[in-house]
Design a protein around this nucleic acid. Structure first.
Lengths: 153, 153
DNA sequence: CGAAGAATGCAGAAATTTTGCATATTATGC
DNA sequence: GCATAATATGCAAAATTTCTGCATTCTTCG
């Protein structure tokens, strides 16, 4: 799909460079062979949760966790029916609990280990929706690992 | 969507009447204004987890002939390779243990959280059989959520 | 207020899912 | 074992959903 690669690139770009406007991003994307419009970039940024800070687009990273707001370190998929969430050691249970409590219709069930939560979903569509919902529930604090691989959609 | 209403009707039908063949179901659906083919009904039944018991299509989750000591609250699937069982808090382990102990050939492995068990199976066929077997092992005590709500996609 | 930047309704394009047909595979009765 | 009924499935077309760009409106900030 086109959207995925573009979003991935957008992610990578705003992580490595500074962009003041969406037009600049469009320009840079084009330069890298990805044709896109401002509308799409606008929607991408929204979906990625990027915001303009000090005039530049940034992925918000919380330095200090807000009390009551749980952090997750990573969010990824395995096949169409699983979502895997990584947390700090010992945080898997509270995270799973919060997901359970949210009672999303897309979520079939969760299992928590120490720093990992497995979330079973019906199908890819449910997976997609669940990811969207879950990422709303927590603050994502990306670790040093492979950039972008886990944020896109 | 067409699929949803049809599946809903199929669900309702096999709950209220007895159907020996998919052709009968097709006929009954047609009578109620829903045009469908055997192929679709076949796929619906698979998706709904219905199985033929004693020559009639039945929803295994509505069948609990043998009363076990342990209770489960819900039994659902995610894809072809997972079965998800919900239990009361803290009951996941004993439930998983019992499943393990039963040593069903269809069950590849289980993981228990606090109130959820993931059960890995080889394929859809194994999944179906495992569901039938597992639901025999326990008493199903459905919570107050809409019946079937979790079965129809 | 005015201009630049960003968001959004909408219609067409693209991608995904569903469906029915034809047919393969499996179950059933004899 | 067959013969046959019943069910499952590969495939291409149809239906549905999602995405995209354009045009336009809404926001922001000087």
């Amino acid at each position: 799909m086109r959207k995925r690669t573009r979003q991935q690139k957008v992610l990578e770009l705003i992580r490595t460079k500074r962009f003041r406007t969406q037009a600049e991003l469009v320009e840079e994307l084009r330069r890298r062979g990805i044709r896109a419009t401002q509308s799409s970039v606008s929607r991408d940024l929204a979906r990625l949760g990027a915001v303009k800070i000090n005039g530049y687009y940034t992925l918000p990273r919380l330095v200090h966790p807000i009390a009551g707001v749980l952090e997750i370190l990573d969010l990824d998929t395995a096949g169409d029916h699983l979502i895997v969430v990584k947390t700090e050691p010992g945080q898997a249970s509270p995270v799973a609990l919060k997901i359970d409590h949210a009672n999303f219709p897309e979520v079939v069930g969760t299992v928590a280990g120490d720093d990992t939560v497995f979330i079973a979903v019906k199908d890819r569509e449910a997976q997609r929706k669940a990811i969207a919902r879950i990422s709303q529930l927590f603050t994502l604090r990306p670790s040093r690992s492979a950039p972008g691989a886990t944020l896109s959609r």
